Computed example of a mutant assay.
Amino acid sequence: MDGGITQTFDPVIRPAGLDGVLVTFGDALTEPANRAALAFAAAVARAGIDGIEDCAPSLVSAFVRFDPLHLGLDAVTARLRALLVEQDWYAAPLPQGRRFIRVPTVYGTELAPQLEEAAQVAGMSPAEAVASLSEARVRVQTIGFAPGQPYLGLLSDAWDIPRQTVLTKSVPEGALVVAIRQFVLFSVTNPTGWRHVGQTALKLFRPETAAPFFLRPGDEVQFVSVSPEVIARYTDDPDGGAEIEAIR
């Protein structure tokens, strides 16, 4: 996950609408920038600053929402700047409570029909692509686009492949797609410009539960290669056969 990259970007604080502030840690996605966004968002939540109502990380930023009737923009900015100088956020420990999750995944076959195309773009054989993707341990960098839908990375440089130039009309819930050194795991059926390389039985969005999003930013995931017959066993299991352990 590019842990050895030297980070030279200075964090930037910008207003975002009438009640928001965006704290940005990079102008491109890197492991340190994502680490900083996750760690800083967790620190803001722990700080319990009166007037700040929410803080959510994205790929390289943390969005802070505040009550403008209680706390002005200048005051919010000052408090966030004070927090920024407390430590090197690019090397900060990731938030506690993270999990490592092994998710059974079918690569290729009619369930994930674009594996061979993606492998070719990445300069690999299909077998090499399955080995590369299924052995990768990736981080949930952010949740977005659809309820509970994670962006995960970073994959090796070989997977710095572009999105398609046309949309796939629909991929199913549980579809694993790949582009620009990232996985996206679909929480709902949707069109996509990313190549569909794997299929899981994991149900990511569970609105009937107290914690409706199964994955959280900072979780680590490995998409383990299994056969279609194995995946078929998990159709009634919302965890899709996943093995879950705490990261300590």
Rank of each mutant, 00 (worst) to 15 (best):
A62Q: 01
P238T: 04
D50K: 11
R181T: 10
G26Q: 12
R137S: 15
L73K: 03
L176Y: 07
D2F: 06
A158F: 00
A45H: 03
T8C: 07
M124Q: 12
R79T: 10
V64R: 00
A211M: 06
P217W: 11
T109D: 08
L80M: 04
L111H: 11
L185D: 08
A28E: 15
E31K: 00
S58K: 02
E128Q: 15
P162R: 11
A82W: 02
A45V: 06
D2T: 10
D27N: 15
A33I: 02
G20N: 04
P228S: 07
S187M: 13
A175S: 13
R195L: 13
G3L: 13
E243Y: 05
R99H: 11
E229Q: 14
P228G: 05
A179H: 04
A78M: 03
V188I: 14
Y234E: 03
V21W: 00
T192R: 03
F186P: 03
P217I: 10
F213A: 01
S58W: 01
V171N: 07
T165G: 12
L154S: 09
G241L: 03
P32L: 07
L71G: 03
D27A: 12
G4S: 08
G20A: 05
V12K: 11
R216N: 13
V224N: 08
S134G: 09
Q149N: 08
E110V: 10
G123N: 06
R35W: 11
E245S: 13
G20S: 04
S170L: 10
S187N: 12
Q114S: 08
V221T: 02
P217Q: 13
A210K: 10
A232C: 04
A119I: 02
F66E: 00
D160E: 10
G198F: 05
G174M: 00
T6D: 13
V171L: 07
P228K: 05
A232F: 03
R139P: 09
G97R: 04
W194G: 01
A47E: 14
S134A: 15
P238R: 03
G26V: 10
E220K: 11
Q149T: 02
E117F: 02
Q164S: 15
R35T: 13
R46H: 05
I143F: 00
R65F: 10
P147N: 09
R35N: 15
A201G: 08
F183V: 11
Y107V: 12
L83R: 12
G20H: 03
F66Q: 00
V130F: 07
D237Q: 02
F25A: 06
Q87W: 03
A91Q: 15
F40Q: 14
M1I: 13
F145C: 02
V64G: 00
E220M: 13
D67F: 02
G4P: 01
Q164D: 15
A175G: 05
F66V: 00
A75R: 14
F25Y: 04
L22P: 00
V130M: 09
S125W: 05
A246T: 03
M1L: 12
A201K: 00
V166Y: 09
F223K: 09
L155K: 11
P95C: 04
G193N: 13
A136L: 09
E243C: 04
L84M: 06
V44R: 07
A28T: 14
F205R: 02
F205H: 15
C55L: 02
